[in-house]
């Protein structure tokens, strides 16, 4: 299952950060949460089918789509990207 979280953009931003999480393939290592440079992620309280706590975008307004989470993820279960606001509208 794939879920997306989209923040409400700040008015002065030209893009917004988007994080895509495949919560079922996550093994809950929390690398993404720890190393998100903006502290935007946290682990869910819920479990996925394999019994791990996957991440979620806890503070969407902080995410700038830098994809550091994507680089860290050992299970290829999360990535971030930037969406131009003109295109996203």
């Amino acid at each position: 299952m794939t879920t997306t979280a989209t923040p409400a953009p700040k008015k002065d931003k030209k893009f917004k950060g988007v994080v895509v999480i495949n919560r079922e393939s996550c093994k809950g290592c929390a690398f993404c949460v720890e190393f998100c440079p903006l502290g935007a992620l946290d682990l869910e309280k819920d479990y996925n089918a394999k019994g791990y706590h996957p991440p979620y975008l806890a503070k969407p307004e902080l995410c700038n789509g830098c994809d550091t989470c994507g680089l860290y993820c050992p299970d290829f279960s999360i990535f971030g990207y930037r969406e131009k606001l003109e295109q996203a509208a």
């Binding site: 290592c29 690398f31 680089l71 050992p74």
Partner: peptide
């Protein structure tokens, strides 16, 4: 999913 354990760093290097 890969055979790698939770918290293993190999997947990160592959990334």
């Amino acid at each position: 999913p890969s055979i790698w354990c939770p918290g293993c760093g190999i997947g990160t290097t592959v990334n």
